[in-house]
Computed example of a mutant assay.
Amino acid sequence: MSRYRVQVQALPAQTFTAQLGVNTLTIEMQWAVRLQVFQVNIRAASGALLTAGRYLLPGVDLLAGLYPPSKVNYGSLTLEGAQPTPDNLGKDNFLVWSDE
């Protein structure tokens, strides 16, 4: 079992590439002011959109229930800690990837 933190910054918008096991994913986070939540888009290395508009909430696996179901096992990507805001993202909480 592998498990590690994915580095994020306390910013209202960011795009970064993360090596998650054998897969490289591009993660886009955008703060939705009216909703007071981050919305997340995730793309495979090929550029294929895996998920769009998911809310970044504690305990929610951003890679669960991809549709159409992927033949690739991307593992799980979950936020642990406090409800994220542009000020506390990556400080009071963190993204954790696991291959389980």
Rank of each mutant, 00 (worst) to 15 (best):
D61M: 07
Q30G: 04
L79A: 05
A52Y: 08
Y55V: 07
V33T: 10
V22N: 00
I27M: 00
P68Y: 11
N88A: 10
Y67G: 00
K71G: 09
K71L: 06
V60N: 03
W97P: 02
A45S: 09
T85L: 08
P86W: 05
R3S: 10
A44D: 13
A44H: 14
Q83G: 03
L63W: 07
W31M: 08
P84L: 10
T24G: 02
I27G: 03
T15L: 03
L63N: 09
R5V: 07
F16I: 03
N23Y: 06
Q7E: 13
P86L: 08
E28Y: 10
E100N: 14
L57E: 10
Q9E: 07
E28C: 13
V33D: 00
W97M: 09
S2R: 06
L25R: 02
R34E: 10
T24A: 03
L62N: 07
R54P: 14
S70T: 13
L77C: 06
T78S: 03
R54C: 15
E28A: 15
A48C: 11
T85K: 07
L63Q: 00
S76K: 09
T78I: 14
L49G: 00
V96W: 15
Y74E: 00
T17A: 05
L56T: 11
L79T: 03
Q30T: 13
L63H: 08
I42Q: 00
S76I: 01
L79M: 02
D92F: 05
G81Q: 09
L25K: 04
A44T: 09
V60Y: 09
L56G: 06
M1Y: 09
G90I: 05
Q14F: 02
A48Q: 15
L79V: 07
T85P: 00
P12V: 02
I42G: 00
R3E: 13
L62A: 07
V8W: 01
L57Q: 08
L63I: 11
N93P: 12
T26I: 15
G59W: 14
I42F: 02
G47L: 15
W31N: 01
A64G: 04
A45I: 07
L95D: 10
Q7R: 13
V72I: 14
V22E: 01
A48W: 13
G47P: 14
V37H: 04
L89A: 04
